[in-house]
Computed example of a mutant assay.
Amino acid sequence: MTDGGLRQAFLALRDEFLEICRGRIGVVERNWSEITSGLADENTAEALEFIKREAHTIAGSSGTYGYADMSKSARELEVICARLMDEKVGDMSVAQKDELEAAVTFLREESTRMFADPEIGTIPF
């Protein structure tokens, strides 16, 4: 396969990744909304687990497709969720919610940039 053919294949895979990533961001948003609305008070750990899992996947795949900032923001969100889960947080304090909100906002901002301009990602060849 020529370099041009590899590039085209990579771009097609990247387009697929972007579509899948939109769904993963949606899962993060829905679970964050449940936490902030109080609907997840008794299931905060479950909502955090969903967010952590999606953030983990987004972090790895974003890096693969050249979106380093997106990968970093997702990794940060994953780490915060893991810590909160380790602390066995039921009702989060205001400070904990603020920290989590900042990480979700950072992820949202990076995803908005990535979806608006897919070319910001680096291509490995």
Results as ranks from 00 to 15, higher is better:
Q8N: 15
V27D: 12
R75T: 00
I80L: 00
R22F: 05
V79A: 03
M92Q: 04
I51F: 09
E119D: 15
I51D: 00
P124F: 14
E29G: 12
R22G: 02
E16T: 09
E119A: 15
S73Q: 03
I120D: 11
H56C: 01
G121L: 09
G63C: 06
N31M: 09
R30C: 10
I80E: 05
Y65I: 10
D98C: 10
E101L: 11
G90E: 09
C81S: 07
L39N: 14
E29H: 11
G5N: 15
D69P: 09
V27P: 12
L13E: 11
E34K: 10
T57Y: 14
S61Y: 12
G121V: 09
L13T: 07
T64R: 10
M70V: 10
I35H: 07
M85I: 03
A45P: 01
E78W: 03
A55C: 09
E46W: 00
A102C: 01
I25M: 14
H56G: 01
F115V: 00
D98Y: 07
A116P: 13
A95V: 11
I25V: 06
V94M: 14
T2Q: 08
F10V: 08
I25C: 14
C81H: 00
A45W: 03
G66A: 09
G5T: 07
G5P: 11
G63Y: 08
A103K: 09
T2Y: 06
I120S: 06
K52E: 03
A68I: 12
C21N: 13
A68D: 08
W32V: 04
A103Y: 04
A116F: 05
L6A: 10
L84H: 04
A103I: 01
V94N: 11
H56A: 00
R14E: 14
A103W: 01
I25G: 13
E119T: 03
M114G: 02
F125M: 12
